[in-house]
């Protein structure tokens, strides 16, 4: 078990280093830098000029004057390891770690709620469709799933805004003050994963229903619902868990459209904003954070595999 953990840890570190290198190199290769781009977008006015100077001075303070790119990389990585990544270019008054620490809980809350909602709906739909496979109900559900899969979440968000706010005026249209603010973004974000997961659950359940141990359970006289939950669902969820992990991680990194649409202070805006404005520290910081999230969720998936499937628990040996 110790060897397994060490092995995973080493692999995680290698992954993160690779991701950071790739991001940094791509950023260097991309046309333009922060200073030029911000000059263009703000029309090189006096204030912009002043802002630029301010940024450049803080940059010099941290990275020194005229340092080669590879040194910048090393300095940033040192900061990343010590959770001290310095100020963002675009938001000079904020540090990168401060931005992440402030925005991540918001994105994470929405992500977890959205995936929970998606699972809550997808599992029953998948099971129902599997039990009635190739019947009209299955066809209908799978048709809806296909639609759900093809509607982009910002379109869904727009629909929700028009109906729930524009017509019915039930909910606040945006902001981040209380639970009511979460309803629309969570629903909008959940639709896509819901469709993907429903499909997965359906095919996993169909496969499990063909297993001889399910026939055995029926031959033992089990009530349908108990058999479905105890014998079918548990074994079907093992492959589904693998898909849920990355979905959660990607939602946690924030979603630009939804955050913009509902004026939510999540990670997504910073993430994309950093890329378009060539904000090196913020982009590197958020990318690495996302990579670390993925690595962690994969570990969580592996652990939950062990809980769901005793065969993968390493410490147990056949007797």
């Amino acid at each position: 078990m110790v060897r397994f953990t060490v092995h995973r840890l080493v692999r995680a570190i290698i992954t993160l280093v690779m991701v950071s290198l790739l991001t940094f190199v791509l950023l260097q290769l991309a046309p333009g830098n922060f200073a030029d781009l911000s000059a263009i977008t703000s029309g090189a006015t006096m204030t912009a000029q002043g802002q630029r100077d301010e940024v450049m001075s803080s940059f010099t303070a941290r990275y020194g004057d005229q340092v080669p790119a590879w040194q910048q990389y090393l300095i940033f990585m040192k900061g990343a390891v010590t959770w001290d990544m310095g100020p963002s270019y675009k938001y000079p008054s904020l540090t990168v770690e401060g931005i992440i620490a402030g925005a991540f809980p918001v994105s994470a809350t929405i992500a977890v709620l959205a995936v929970a909602l998606a699972l809550l709906v997808a599992v029953p739909i998948g099971v129902l469709a599997a039990r009635r496979r190739n019947g009209w109900l299955d066809n209908l559900l799978m048709f809806l799933v296909t639609i759900g899969n093809s509607v982009p979440n910002y379109l869904m968000g727009a629909f929700l805004l028009i109906i729930l706010v524009g017509r019915l005026n039930l909910l606040p249209s945006g902001g981040w003050d209380g639970p009511l603010n979460m309803v629309m973004p969570v629903i909008a974000l959940a639709i896509g994963p819901m469709a993907v997961l429903a499909r997965y659950v359906r095919s996993a359940v169909i496969e499990t229903l063909r297993e001889e141990y399910v026939t055995t359970a029926i031959a033992k006289g089990g009530p349908g619902r108990t058999i479905m939950v105890r014998h079918v669902l548990r074994n079907s969820l093992i492959p589904v868990v693998t898909v849920v992990g990355p979905i959660v991680a990607s939602l946690m990194a924030g979603t630009v459209f939804i955050e913009t649409m509902f004026r939510i202070p999540g990670l997504g805006q910073y993430f994309t904003g950093a890329a378009t404005s060539r904000d090196m520290p913020l982009l590197m910081g958020t990318t690495l954070f996302f990579a670390a999230l993925l690595v962690i969720t994969n570990v969580v998936v592996d652990v939950s595999y062990g809980i769901l499937d005793p065969r993968t628990r390493m410490e147990r040996r056949p007797a």
Binding site: Y213, K220, N235
Partner: peptide, 30 residues
């Protein structure tokens, strides 16, 4: 009736026992 009056055993125990449940659960539930 099935499982109580009429019981059934299949060809391969590896496939007809649920891999993720202990014998305890599988011998008690019915």
């Amino acid at each position: 009736l099935r499982g109580k009056d009429i019981a059934m055993v299949f060809q391969d125990a590896m496939q007809s026992l649920n891999p993720t449940l202990t014998l305890e659960t599988q011998l008690i539930e019915h």
